[in-house]
Design a protein around this nucleic acid. Structure first.
Length: 273
DNA sequence: GCGACAG
DNA sequence: ATCTTGTCGC
């Protein structure tokens, strides 16, 4: 996809007085730097709908996957048609895990591999849903908001669990939703996307209003808890990981095709060390 | 000091 | 997120 890389690089590097020699996809930062970046980026978010309103023809979902003992990250982006929810394009990527999991700093862990996948897309979606928070975040800038700035596209955060905030229980019927509050403000919505199933946490990412974000998420659901874009991205990334060659193990072990002599004619079928 | 804590 | 076995319900 024609990424707005210049915009992304400008806001990432321009404010930090650091050299532009580091590749975009390796955000090697300290937690302290990451927090500083978030505070700067937070000011750049646009939290209202486009004017004039953008007509939606396509919508994308993004997700990542990895497994233990593997230092690789798999990322996938799926673009679906609107409102039919038919798959138009899929892009994927593999990258090294760049940053540990720290609640509140997920962008720096999942962002690079996702941007790498977005860069491979041929078309630009009209809007993107992420598997994570938008502004429902301690500093008001979760994964969806952060990448919305990078991609310069409208984005929505749709997380499976809460990061911050308080809320009243939601009615059990699909379509019901309540506000998510934090420090006296509405930062998102708790949305029931399926009858009697745990709600999801929807929040504005970038260039969108909360009512519209909720409406779009609900209109993307097709009988499952997660909206189709996110669900399809999840499926795509898991297919990718399972089809990928096994991880390069750091630890050296004897090949199983060449068992030690004592194991070949072992009388006991399985000796558990 | 005790919870809470996107993925 | 990943790992993991069974189990409740439409």
């Amino acid at each position: 996809m024609a990424l707005d890389m210049e915009f992304g690089q400008e806001i990432l590097y321009g404010e930090r007085e650091m050299s532009r020699t580091k590749p975009l996809h390796s955000w090697d930062v300290t937690c302290r730097e990451a927090v500083a970046i978030q505070k700067i980026f937070r000011e750049k978010l646009i939290l209202c709908d486009e004017s004039p309103p953008v007509e939606i023809h396509s919508i994308a979902g993004a997700d990542i996957s990895y497994s233990r003992g593997d230092d690789r990250f798999f990322g996938a982006v799926v673009i679906l048609s609107w409102p039919a929810m038919e798959i138009l394009e899929i892009a994927s990527s593999v990258a090294q895990v760049p940053f540990p999991y720290v609640p509140g700093l997920l962008s720096f862990r999942e962002g690079p591999v996702l941007l790498k996948a977005f860069d491979k897309l041929k078309q630009r979606p009209d809007i993107i849903i992420f598997d994570g928070q938008g502004i429902a975040h301690p500093r008001g800038i979760g994964l969806a908001s952060h990448l919305g700035l990078f991609l310069n596209l409208p984005t929505i955060g749709c997380a499976k669990t809460k990061l911050v905030g308080t809320f009243e229980e939601v009615d059990q019927e699909r379509g019901c939703h309540t506000n998510l509050y934090h420090k006296g403000s509405v930062i998102g919505a708790v949305v029931r996307t399926k009858n009697r199933v745990r709600p999801v946490f929807v929040s504005q990412g970038h260039r969108i209003s909360l009512p519209r974000a909720v409406e779009i998420v609900l209109n993307c659901c097709r009988g499952y808890r997660l909206p189709e874009p996110v669900r399809q991205a999840h499926l795509a990334v898991n297919r990718l990981r399972e089809a990928a060659p096994p991880p390069c193990k750091t630890r050296i072990s004897a090949p199983e095709s060449d068992p030690a002599p004592s194991e070949i004619d072992s009388i006991r079928p399985h000796s558990k060390e």
